[in-house]
Amino acid sequence: MEASTARRVGSSLAIVIWLLALGVVALGLRRWMPPLASEHGAGIDAMIRFSMSAVGSLILIGHCVLGYFLWRFSRQDKISFRLAGHHLERRWSLVAALLMAAIAEGGVLTLGLPVWAKVYDTEAPSNALPIEVTTEQFAWNVRYAGPDGVFGRTSPKLITLDNPLGVDAQDPAGKDDVIDLNVIRAEVNRAVKIRLRSKDVLHSFFLPNLRVKQDSVPGMTIEFWFVPNKTGTFELACAELCGLGHYEMRGLLVVLTTEEFQKWLQEKKNG
């Protein structure tokens, strides 16, 4: 009686576990990530694809083996193997350890960290477009340095409702700055160098299509750069809890052609 129950339950568990593995893999084969629109993003996608394939295979193998063991060993009334010797234990552990080290550490060392280093440890190209983004509950203040490439001085003491960044009107460097709200405009295939600041709490500058994410931290100015390589409008999401409007702190990145971008900048300055 007990034995037949064990057989039934073991088989059911095995089948469910096999089906789960198939579900994981079937879902994993679908395209989930938003369409890519940046140069460095290809490296991040390659890293994720590598992990998806490796982990997908391991999940498939793991579930198959577990299911098979449940199937097979729920069918016997006497044990067929008792205690492994130290040698056998060590050998199996070594196989597991080496495989995992190769996948996890191998992946991060060969595919991951080179991309990481390129994103964070290299200087932006000299023609990069400097844009300052200052976050606040629940908006993105965008400022372009203008032709001189220098941002005008700001001070929190000067912040008013009309001057949300606290721009110092006395500073000549600020004369040609262009200020905008919630929309960042950039040129396709030209690096954008973001200077990220925050007025109040933590926020996070997340461009899902461009594989860019960076927290903004009050008291810090964080610089990073990326190259948008597709024209179009991409959504900018806040990815660090910032208060009750966190879910609607939406911005846009509009990637224009060079002509369109220059035209817009000109219009903005004249207007």
């Binding site: 577990l66 063991f69 060993f73 193997f81 552990s93 996890a104």
Partner: peptide, 26 residues
């Protein structure tokens, strides 16, 4: 962090391997 996967995997493999040859009851 990824170094942690190594001992974790060994523990996971030990769990599954512990089923080998047993008389499973549920």
């Amino acid at each position: 962090t990824l170094a942690i996967t190594v001992p974790s995997t060994i523990i996971g493999v030990n769990m599954i391997a512990s089923l080998w040859g047993g008389t499973l009851r549920f």
